[in-house]
Simulated scan of single mutants.
Amino acid sequence: MSSSLSPSSSPSPSSASACAPSSPSPLSPYGWDEDWDAAFAPYAAKGLVPGRVVRVDRGMCDLVTPEGVVRADTEFVVPRDPAKVVCTGDWAAVDPAGADPRYVRTLLPRRTAFLRSTSSKRSEAQVLAANVDHALVAVSLAVELDLGRIERFLALAWESGAQPVVVLTKADLVPDPTGLSYLVQDVETTAPGVPVLTVSALHGDGLDGLTALLGRGTTVLLGTSGAGKSTLANALVGDAVMDVQATRDADGKGRHTTTTRNLLALPSGGVLIDTPGLRGVGLWDAGTGVGQVFAEIEELARDCRFHDCAHDNEPGCAVLGAVEAGALPPRRLESYRKLVRENQWIVAKTDARARAEMKREWKRRGAMGKAMMQAKRGRQR
């Protein structure tokens, strides 16, 4: 794997300025603005220099600074919370040139952060990217669409504070325009309020529209292995900065070409954070994100008879009524229930108060179910 930002090919202040000739700072092409400058002022007074993390590797990280790309130790930024470790996209205060060894002294407060739960049994969050404006969810059209997985990605994207965008890759493998249109409609139904674009990175189709949509902000590229993320990253950067491997013929799955998260400068402005393929997309305290993904269900729920309706078998449930009337696909409701339960379980594992509230809710529903059964038996007698 290679990257356009490495110590051996460090962008000088003059080359960064060439990307944005009117920018007052060589870090402007990487997202530096007046607000970041104000936040950094106390550290500038101590002689530290600003830098944006472009890669993290075993306790060390590469950062783009006004002097170019430097390598620094993250020993002084080891928080107890795994979600606050140094991550690609972070803005940091770094020792000035001449310090040996050179350390990252602190991180500036993040504006956004993309989190997921780890596969660990300790209920920890993993931060995948920091300070992102757009979360680009790459979905391959070479295999059958997994709408449930798309909903998971979108829930995490909304929760992060970034604007999600779904990109259907490998559109050249769907030669039938009608079939492609149906696939797009399925995803649009799954992703209300989210732009859905089709691209063929191999042929360059759809890239202009994607570039225009992303603007000059920071974009994180997400998806499973084989979704075409590295090929798409190369197409957006305009160079073979990421290694690419063919997917397996048997199942269309990828081979984990990308193994680290890398921040890449885009020629059209802004930066792209490429990430390794994700096998698991576990939620992490993403209640708001789940609500946004299933906005139509949340809207229907306002008309339910009970304000705490679980949309299971309660009388007067507007959501179930919409399913029976054919206005809401049953798959959407099942997926909503599943993600809500999973998110409640994650929150309860880390929050004693939430755990107690969940137990009370279980008892309440159990009592309600018993009461309904007794009433039913009484009517039968």
Rank of each mutant, 00 (worst) to 15 (best):
S8H: 15
S9D: 13
P13D: 02
A16R: 14
A18H: 14
L27W: 09
P29I: 00
Y30T: 05
G31W: 08
W32I: 05
A38E: 15
A41C: 02
Y43V: 04
K46P: 11
L48Y: 14
L48F: 13
P50C: 00
R58Q: 06
R58Y: 07
M60T: 10
F76N: 13
V78K: 14
D81A: 08
A83D: 02
K84C: 04
V86E: 02
A93E: 02
P96Y: 09
R105P: 10
R105D: 04
L107E: 05
L108Q: 13
P109E: 00
A113P: 00
F114H: 10
E124Q: 14
A125E: 05
A130E: 09
V132Y: 04
H134I: 13
H134D: 10
H134F: 07
L136G: 12
L136Q: 12
L141N: 01
R152A: 14
L154F: 06
V165Y: 09
V166P: 13
T169K: 04
D172N: 09
L173M: 08
S181K: 15
T190G: 14
A191M: 06
P192Y: 02
G193K: 01
L197P: 15
T198L: 05
L202Y: 00
L202H: 08
T211I: 08
V220E: 07
V220A: 04
L222I: 12
S225N: 04
S230Q: 03
L232Q: 08
A246R: 11
A246C: 07
A246F: 04
D251F: 06
T257E: 05
T259V: 13
A265K: 09
L266K: 05
L278R: 11
L283K: 07
A286C: 12
Q292L: 15
A295F: 00
A295I: 08
E298L: 00
F306T: 01
P330V: 12
R332F: 10
L333M: 09
L333H: 01
Q344W: 01
A354P: 05
R355G: 11
R355T: 01
A356L: 13
E357W: 09
R364D: 14
M372C: 01
R377W: 14
G378Y: 00
